[in-house]
Amino acid sequence: MTGEGRGIVSAWAELLRLPALFTVPGDVLAGAATVPGRPGPHTLWAIASSICLYQAGMALNDWADRAEDAAERPHRPLPSGRVRPTAALTAAGALTATGLALAARAGRPALTVAAPLAATVWAYDLGLKRTPAGPAAMATARALDLLLGAATVSGHVRPALSAAALLGTHTLAVTTVSRHETQGGSPLTALTALATTGALALTLGRRSGDAQVPPESAHLTACGHGPAHPLRAALAVAYAATAARPYFHAALNPSPPLTQKAVGGGVRATIPLQAALSARAGAPVSALITAALAPLAARFAKKVSVT
């Protein structure tokens, strides 16, 4: 690849925040783990749909923020001229259409969830993120992404509402911190996110008495072993460790660099959170698959920022 070609690839990887892409499949897998039924090919279509809709949101985000970024982050792909605004907007539209088509391929229940998910993504990027409703809108998008997995496997989302609420709560905390990452946040916001992380970690570590055991772990139960409590506890600790330290540092000094690190830590913590939700639902295979994405996210985060 020529130097120009590498530059184009690098610009789009930065625009789409490539490391954050690894936080997406775990949403669908965690949702699928909470309902009766066995994940199959339709689940892969749902994951592909989720990835497309997430990337659409990334491209649309920079298109909507191009004027603000020109003043505060001129190095970003659009204000620096490495990606044209029309190309970013076109990509957002194409990715959204592709995501909805893939959801339709996964089944009507999946499309029923993917449609409001896409609408939430566009509503957030085009206006809601600049209002007090912004963090709640982003939390809703993440929760819907998890429900997409549940709808794809069973056609029902009610058993997944608890897991969706936990994921949404984490996303709410991260997004609230991120609202002032370029100017610097406040100690109270970071402390609130830290307390939220601790509460979620404790919830994840407790046995879920009403969790249903999906077919992928049924053979473990038949052999006299329940859902792996040590795995669930280890993932809950990994979640807390990933998010808590940067939140604590941002609480002590809410400067832009430390606030940005806190946001990055919160985004990366999404992966062990998703894995813990799968383990909590009695799906250790899904939990391990999701957890395996964390090293990949960390590796790419050294080259491309997740925020």
Score class of each variant (00 low, 15 high):
Pro159Arg: 09
Asp62Trp: 02
Arg207His: 12
Pro109Ser: 07
Thr242Ala: 01
Ser50Ile: 15
Gln212Phe: 12
Gly7Asn: 12
Thr96Ala: 09
Thr182Val: 14
Gly205Leu: 08
Gly198Met: 12
Thr189Asn: 06
Arg73Cys: 05
Arg299Trp: 11
His75Ala: 15
Ser154His: 11
Trp122Val: 05
Gly3Arg: 15
Thr96Glu: 02
Ala71His: 15
Leu95Val: 11
Thr112Phe: 07
Ser162Cys: 15
Ala301Asp: 03
Gly149Arg: 02
Trp12Tyr: 08
Leu147Asp: 03
Ala94Ile: 02
Ser178Glu: 06
Val113Trp: 03
Ala97Tyr: 03
Gly155Asp: 07
Gly31Lys: 06
Lys303Phe: 14
Leu78Lys: 00
Ala190Ser: 12
Asp145Cys: 09
Ala119Val: 11
Ala165Phe: 09
Ser186Gly: 14
Pro187Asp: 08
Gly282Glu: 02
Ala139Ser: 04
Cys223Arg: 14
Ala115Met: 10
Thr290Ile: 10
Ala251Leu: 06
Met138Gly: 01
Leu44Arg: 05
Gly184Ala: 13
Ala287Tyr: 00
Trp63His: 04
Ile271Met: 05
Leu95Gln: 05
Ala59Asp: 03
Tyr247Leu: 15
Val174Cys: 00
Ala218Lys: 11
Leu29Trp: 04
Ala115Gln: 07
Leu202Cys: 14
Thr43Gln: 05
Ala101Cys: 00
Thr242Ser: 01
Leu147Pro: 03
Ala163Gly: 06
Thr2Cys: 09
Thr34Ile: 15
His42Ile: 11
Thr290Leu: 08
Lys303Met: 12
Ala46Cys: 10
Ala97Ile: 09
Leu18Ile: 05
Ala236Arg: 04
Gly209Met: 13
Ala11Trp: 00
Ala48Asn: 00
Val28Asp: 04
Arg280Gly: 02
Val113Ser: 11
Ile289Met: 08
Gly26Val: 00
Thr290Ser: 05
